[in-house]
Design a protein around this nucleic acid. Structure first.
Lengths: 249, 249
DNA sequence: CGTACAGTTGATGATCATCAATCCCTGTGG
DNA sequence: CCACAGGGATTGATGATCATCAACTGTACG
């Protein structure tokens, strides 16, 4: 696998990533710009780091499986992972793609509900649930930021809902590609966007067949809206039409 | 409109609703049964109640609109509401149906992202965001329960994702009806289930056309799996096949 | 009783899934 | 350095499903 460039924190955000787990989100309640900002202070990151152990995981590795005992939550330092469920029909539904400064592993009744697998090589901060529970009780400030992050993730899930609900493959794909673009350059609008996951992953995320993803990609390219540089990179040609397609139907 | 029976708290849960806002969820971290339980202690509910004002709202009333300033969060005492976004295409996507002991109004950057409208008459506890922020800081215990609830809601959103991702209308519908059944009788499996919302609402929730919902309903009825008593009530005839359809594809 | 809206049914067409065949890239080993 | 193997990606043909449009029915409420 080609090495994807390691992201040293999103540019344009308030606090650079120094040490320890980092969480990014758009805060609720307070009026703010609509760009994710760092939620944790340096001191809070350090506190979290004391309860966390670092796990460097190669690409395509299962972090945990749905149904197994939930002993830890994870914060992504670098890399990309997918969170999914395999259905009886053999189909797979990817619930979310997660990137640097994202949080996962919040379980239900002590068991993980989704399986999580790395897409690229990733550095993960693993935080024992018992230690976390204790830390959150002790530090309401950190707890509040976790609440913030969870609300943010909820909103992303709702957005995903709207994506899956669209019935045109091209529009669905455009919305996913826009997410990747935002992920890659939250502030600046760079034209070139790396695509860490396979077409099959994209299909499972969008609720489409693999072939439908390919055809939608080709159509976007034929219409001169985007262009593929190899299979794992994307260039946005006509930002106007791209944004229009990717906007809410 | 026919009056829907007012729910005095879900039967079979630990704490009955006495006074003040009540939150139900399946806790994460701790091992527990997979049924929602009351998250707040009597004391916590009372504290919340001091920051809350009661709003009794008739059916089909907008509580707030997407984009407006988010001054308060809401806890449902009784009744049912829908949370949705209207898209430019004229289509509407219902993000969630919410019932007694549910929480809504968690905003993004100080603005509501969805519009919320009552389906039935409802009693809402309205909690000022500033007062809430202060209360959460003061009471980490309450804050933790809000985190719990939010994680639970996130999980429901992911489940909704899987529903919308199915491509067979009958299966989608079955999954929604099962949600209504669980909502109505979390512990016992009652055969008769009230349907508070319109077919059109169901369509907007499932990502189907109104007609597709009707046809899927008819098919379920023709196959002897369910039966409709009027338009707003449902009886489950063949629980076996019903569960199978409503299970994860 | 009549109006308005929710719900129902039928006919038609567009879109996407599926199946099948092939291509292409990448990493491996000779 | 090249050949090869294997999985990802691409393309084409076909059919199923659902959206759309249109007409109509039922129900609630003034």
């Amino acid at each position: 696998l080609p090495d994807h460039p390691v992201k040293h924190g999103a540019p344009g955000t308030t606090a650079p990533i120094a040490h320890g787990p980092s969480l990014a989100a758009i805060p609720f309640m307070k009026l703010a710009r609509s760009e994710p900002v760092e939620l944790l202070s340096a001191a809070q990151r350090e506190q979290l780091a004391r309860s966390a152990s670092i796990r460097d995981v190669p690409a395509r590795t299962v972090v945990y499986r749905a149904g197994s005992a939930a002993d830890a939550v994870f914060v992504i330092g670098t890399g990309a992972v997918k969170s999914f469920r395999d259905l009886r029909s053999g189909r797979r539904r990817i619930v979310a793609f997660l990137f640097a400064r994202d949080l996962f592993g919040l379980s239900e009744a002590g068991r993980y509900v989704n399986t999580v697998e790395t897409i690229t090589a990733a550095r993960l901060y693993e935080i024992d649930t018992v230690a976390l529970a204790e830390l959150l009780q002790r530090e309401p400030g950190i707890e509040f930021q976790f609440l913030c992050k969870t609300v943010h993730v909820l909103r992303e899930a709702q957005h995903h809902n709207i994506i899956v609900g669209r019935r045109d493959a091209v529009g669905k794909l455009a919305m996913l590609l826009r997410l990747l673009q935002k992920q890659h350059s939250p502030s600046r609008d760079r034209r070139d966007v790396p695509i860490p996951m396979t077409r099959s992953d994209m299909a499972d995320y969008l609720g489409l067949s693999l072939e439908a993803v390919v055809r939608a990609s080709r159509r976007l390219q034929r219409q001169g809206i985007i262009e593929f540089i190899g299979r794992r990179q994307l260039r946005i040609i006509d930002r106007q039409r791209f944004e229009q397609l990717a906007s809410l139907e």
